[in-house]
């Protein structure tokens, strides 16, 4: 337990570079900024429509995956590149603890950033409308999507130096093109799992409105939670197995 906590906190420290935090912090404020800008230019459009536009076009399909990709791919990728992974695996601790802790560290940072973006956006919405009912649902949805993306990108960072490139191809080609064209694959789409988490906790009218913004094929909150936990468990298991079997040359 002490080892797991030490690896998690060190990972968080590693991933929280000052420059990275500034860039991501500004990026996370972008949806809120655009929302407020639209208040000036598209005042006639309903605030909820503008918010859902931001959620479905910017927050879930772009911001969450890109921020999580860069953070999560670094969690094991930086250790491998810097040679510190051998430092970690040569400790008397099970590889599952390493896999779980690295994943945990990546999720804390990525989800923290994405929740910050979600809160900023929904607070901007709340200031305009006086409604604060979407703060928690969007934060939870952002956390779900962060966990699922981290499940994919933490192991990917271990395998290749081109994790960011491959991750971007996944986001833009698979998620934003293939899944959009073949809705049957939507259950495999991390950001749709996040949107489902958001939609499941949000008031009913929001879920209905989301359909107009491409939010089709969404699952219930319970299913989204189940998928999130399942994908995370599979990812940690797979990373553990790879750490046990793969040579560190």
């Amino acid at each position: 337990m002490r080892a797991a906590w030490a690896i998690t906190t060190t990972t968080v420290k590693q991933l929280l570079g000052v420059r990275r935090m500034i860039v991501f912090g500004i990026a996370e404020l972008a949806p809120a900024g655009v929302f407020l800008l639209m208040t000036q230019t598209l005042a006639e459009e309903a605030a909820l429509d503008r918010l859902l536009g931001m959620v479905a076009a910017l927050y879930f399909p772009l911001l969450v995956p890109i921020v999580t990709l860069i953070v999560a791919a670094s969690a094991l990728g930086d250790e491998r590149r810097d040679g510190t992974l051998s430092f970690l695996v040569l400790r008397p601790i099970p590889r599952s603890v390493i896999a779980l802790s690295k994943f945990g560290g990546a999720v804390i940072v990525a989800a923290g950033l994405n929740i910050f973006g979600a809160v900023a956006l929904t607070v901007a919405y709340g200031i305009e409308t006086g409604s604060w009912s979407l703060v928690v649902p969007l934060a939870v949805g952002g956390a779900f999507a962060s966990i699922v993306y981290a499940s994919l990108f933490v192991p990917l960072g271990f395998f290749t130096d081109r994790a960011v490139l491959i991750g971007l191809a996944f986001v833009f080609i698979f998620e934003n093109a293939v899944v959009s064209a073949l809705s049957g694959l939507s259950s495999l789409s991390p950001w749709r799992i996040g949107v489902s988490g958001f939609s499941g906790l949000a008031p009913n009218e929001v879920a209905v409105e989301l359909a107009d913004f491409g939010g089709t094929g969404l699952s219930s909150f319970g299913t989204a939670l189940f998928r999130t936990v399942l994908i995370a468990a599979i990812s940690i298991g797979a990373t553990t197995m790879v750490l046990r079997r793969r040579d560190l040359t």
Partner: peptide, 26 residues
């Protein structure tokens, strides 16, 4: 093991690094 390559965490101090090794070693 003392590997030939850098294999240290640049964001940690040497004391934190050694402390980290001690914690992980139980």
């Amino acid at each position: 093991l003392v590997p030939e390559e850098a294999a240290v965490y640049p964001s940690l101090t040497a004391r934190e690094f050694v402390r980290y090794a001690a914690t992980l070693a139980g």
